[in-house]
Design a protein around this nucleic acid. Structure first.
Lengths: 371, 371
DNA sequence: TTGTAGGCGTTATCAC
DNA sequence: GTGATAACGCCTACAA
């Protein structure tokens, strides 16, 4: 009594057609074992399976081999423009090896990361790619136990996870060097969440390279975003204004924060790049079409996804490979959101001004907060 | 001899713990059949399975029931900003019902759509959500045969597919009505690919409502993009300039085309909205942060994904539901990329000008193409 | 209310 | 080189 049976042909059907045993069909159709099949039989079997349009039943193979050729991919939010290219890279690499990705979103919620992985586990995923991990994410270590895992774009503290990240430090070095070369010395920062490796590393690099470059901040002037989005960028920009310490440039931890900052400053009559230079990070889509076009750090999201996928497949198919930690190079993209402080102001600009924001001698903008 | 056996507990293990037969465990753990299990036994079994942290093996269940609780989702390119919110909607709805999505990209290539579906089929997907279909996509009908399918955001000609789309016609009606109310009569269009339902429908609506509104084009003035991206928007804008027929506004088939058009026009010294009004479609992320901020049609991408997922689950779980065709309402979002032709020009604008682009009496811009 | 048995489609390990 | 057989873990008539 066949309960199921989609009408989809099985190996049994092919076997009957060709007049051999199922096990022979299995052998013939499996690259790893078909060396021991006579070439004439191979031909017949290939033809028969093509004629019937045979497709192996993944569930059966999975049950038997405990391999699903499926990778779980967990991201905070696919709607954030940094993740689509990563996912695209992952998928392209996976497809190349006959693997497939199951996607889950966490909205940056640690608990939902756990939930997501627990939903993926029973589906027999062979590996896990996490773009959602937090810094020192002990929970991630726990839930990923026993399954090949690589983190992408972010990293936890756990060296047991393979990781593919970007050279955040070099990125911020380039940003600060660029701003310094334009004459900026008072460079504030809108930092990302310090619970995430990217936010933490970029801020650390901001502090470190500010010192190395001898920039004139006695102590870092930074505002910390609670999330990498435009709203937080706006909030942090306001915070910087309220702080009251002078600055002529703001290095933001990513492009979305920079976009928010530009908007908020503009509301206060402070225009970028005329009155402040602002930088982003990621070179997200449309960063070049905004006005001002964002000076930012280009990051190889697609490559990161690609490499993460390659790593995971390597870990799955080759027993005990050791964890690797890949750091992808970044580039500086100079556009129009940064401007020289020393060069003569543009002719077109109506009211040239090179004095810092929040400089006491120059209260061009009235702070509502102080009303 | 157990070849596999992850250390993951199975029903057998729980059965041994509790001292009953596996089938009882299966019954108890299955909502559909646990009515016939004594509540004390239920308790014991639940505790035992919790203690062991038991998770059902999806492959085994799948093999037996021919259900994978997996949906294939095929999109042209996850990197295009319209698709992430759709996918997010799909995932959220699926997760709610214990389903999961496998994603595939086609880059708009019809052959890759076939390939993608053929890669998904053997994995026993229960349903298919296609955001990649073409108009009159006979191939899609063929490859999706025998599996519940809904198209989202686009539709084919095949009424057998359920579909969730946006009210493109109302969108273009609103756009044209808006432009007309600003005094525009010579409204050009940058249309999308006519091989895609959205491109075709939006262009048809442009033509239809231009006539209904009595706009002064004897015949439509349109340029056709080969893809929905910025580059094509630039190319089409150039094409409109070369065409030489006057216009004061351009209604684009989506935001990315509009962004490209704005860029291209600007290169020719034609500024939006001062010299041309330009509209988009979709209200993609950052559309409000561009300058000019895009006047566009807001579209419920997330909702579309959500509904598509609900539909597919309905089709899977309830035998022979008939195909439905959902049309989601859209809204007009007026921003600064459109400007009144009749109202007095802004004070700030240096050189007010309300005469049409390409008007013979006014060759403000020199066309390189005619050099 | 619970146990028994058989099978879903594939693969691995035998034996021939 | 090919066939037979026994799992993989779960589900479901049917029997008890």
């Amino acid at each position: 009594m066949r309960k199921t049976r989609n009408g989809r042909p099985t190996m049994k059907d092919i076997a009957r057609d060709v007049g051999v045993h199922v096990s022979t069909i299995s052998r013939a159709l499996n690259p790893k074992s078909n060396h021991a099949v006579s070439s004439e039989l191979m031909d017949k079997i290939k033809r028969a399976s093509a004629r019937r349009d045979y497709r192996p039943n993944a569930a059966a193979a999975m049950l038997r081999t405990n391999r699903s050729r499926t990778i779980g991919v967990v991201v905070p939010d696919i709607t954030d423009p940094v993740f689509p290219p990563i996912i695209r890279g992952i998928e392209d690499a996976l497809a190349h090896h006959g693997y497939v990705a199951i996607l889950a979103n966490t909205d940056g919620d640690a608990r939902r990361q756990t939930l997501a992985v627990e939903a993926l586990r029973p589906r027999g995923i062979d590996g896990l790619i996490l773009a959602s991990v937090m810094r020192d994410d002990a929970e991630a270590t726990r839930i990923a136990a026993g399954i090949p895992t690589v983190t992408v774009s972010r990293s936890t503290g756990d060296p047991q996870f393979s990781s593919v990240v970007h050279d955040e430090d070099d990125g911020f070095r380039r940003i600060l060097t660029h701003l310094a070369s334009l004459g900026h010395r008072a460079i504030a920062s809108i930092a990302g969440p310090q619970t995430i490796s990217t936010g933490y590393n970029r801020y650390s690099s901001y502090v470190r390279h500010s010192e190395l470059l001898g920039l004139g901040q006695d102590r870092p002037l930074a505002s910390f975003a609670r999330a990498f989005n435009e709203m937080e960028g706006e909030r942090c920009a306001e915070e910087l204004l309220v702080a009251g310490r002078p600055f002529t440039a703001v290095a933001c931890a990513n492009d979305r924060l920079a976009v928010g900052a530009i908007t908020a400053f503009r509301r206060h009559g402070i225009h970028c790049p005329h009155d402040v230079s602002i930088t982003g990070f990621n070179d997200m889509p449309l960063a070049d079409r905004l006005s001002p076009a964002l000076t930012t750090v280009s990051v190889q999201h697609y490559q990161a996804g690609l490499q993460a996928a390659e790593r995971i497949i390597d870990m799955i198919e080759n027993a005990n490979v050791t964890p690797t930690h890949i750091v992808l190079p970044v580039g500086l993209i100079v556009r129009t959101s940064t401007r020289s402080l020393t060069r003569a102001p543009d002719k077109e600009a109506g009211h040239a001004d090179t004095s810092p924001i929040n400089d006491n001698k120059n209260s061009r903008h009235k702070r509502e907060e102080e009303l």
